[in-house]
Amino acid sequence: MNRNPVHHSAGAAHADGEHHEHIAPLSMYLGVFGALAVLTVVTVGVSELGIPQPYSLILAMIVATMKASLVVTFFMHLLWDDRLNSVVFLGTVIFVAIFFALTMTDLLSRDFLNPEMGNYVMLEEDKARWNECMETKTYDECRDKLPRGWSQANPDAVDGHHGAEGDHGAEGDHGKAEGDHGKADDHGTKSDH
């Protein structure tokens, strides 16, 4: 640890005074605004085309990311700013990604090792579709009619929900289905379920 050249951690690097002020031309702001407006029109227009499900989502997210990048780079001056601020922004995105990824790992894999686990709610429509299928076909053939995360090993578990519907009569018409509360182990708190 020898003596380093003495300098201020932040001050000396920008000792030339007006260094951090980058005044972008008006035309650039106008161009960015134009691009944002066009992209907005495009994304609304594309939604009218009726592109099937996963692709429309991907497309909309690509457009949104493009718009966000324009705002961040030009309006928020990250292009000319201290690199540290870009690190903060990108770091934040990484942490959000961690949060989403690990939470969704749980939700996406509830029935992965343990088929008796699934999500809590089965819609009325899903139940109707399931029952209709089961009238003519076997259990295995109907498995794909089940909602995601609901691959019950035992088909009775689905039928079992019919019995409970009466309890839900008051709210039944907007399709609130029976929650499978037993799957959520409320350890650590005193559950009153």
């Binding site: 201020h8 932040a10 001050g11 005074g17 260094h19 540290l84 601020n85």
Partner: peptide, 12 residues
């Protein structure tokens, strides 16, 4: 130390 330090701290 300087106005640059203050301004960059504020933005950071």
């Amino acid at each position: 130390h300087s106005k640059e330090q203050q301004l960059s701290a504020a933005k950071f």
